[in-house]
Amino acid sequence: MLDIAPLKFPESEVLQSLSRMSIAGIAAFKGRRAALEAALGLTLPHTPRRVAHGTTNYLWNGHDAWLAMSETPALLENLTTVAAKFAAITDQSDGFVAFRVSGFHRRAILKKLVPIDLHQDVFAPDAVALTLAGQLPVKLWMQDDGSFALAGLRSFSRALHHALEEAAREFVHPGHD
């Protein structure tokens, strides 16, 4: 087996890496959305929202497309088995790296980078946004605990982390870790 040296990023009380997850892209073939949903046993979001099903989160990822995220390593295999007839299933577990922005100032941090309205009355708890953080395309959503999660391309993970760290700098107090 090959060793994995996981990507490591400095963390603070407001910025952490999200633990490694299985991620799979799902893109429905024409006219097969209903069959896909039946095979998965759930209704997929048709607007930018996320839906939880067991331990898997399904994030809207564009027209008739979703990203499934789960702690289960067998996610890709399971999805392929039940859904490959109805949708293109692609492994994306290594394509993205995600970060969590938390704490009282999380919106103040993100407004420096994210050009959409994150006000609590506007960005719903189950909302998903495909947008920018600074110059980087990201997928943005709120976790169940109210913190924000951002997933960016793996090759940009250091750049994304740097941008978030700089934005969070004024809210991080030295001495905390």
Binding site: P48, G62, H63, P115, I116, A129, T131
Partner: peptide, 11 residues
């Protein structure tokens, strides 16, 4: 129509 109103920088 999918994402809602967005700024020019996204297009």
């Amino acid at each position: 129509p999918y994402c809602g109103p967005r700024g020019l920088e996204e297009f």
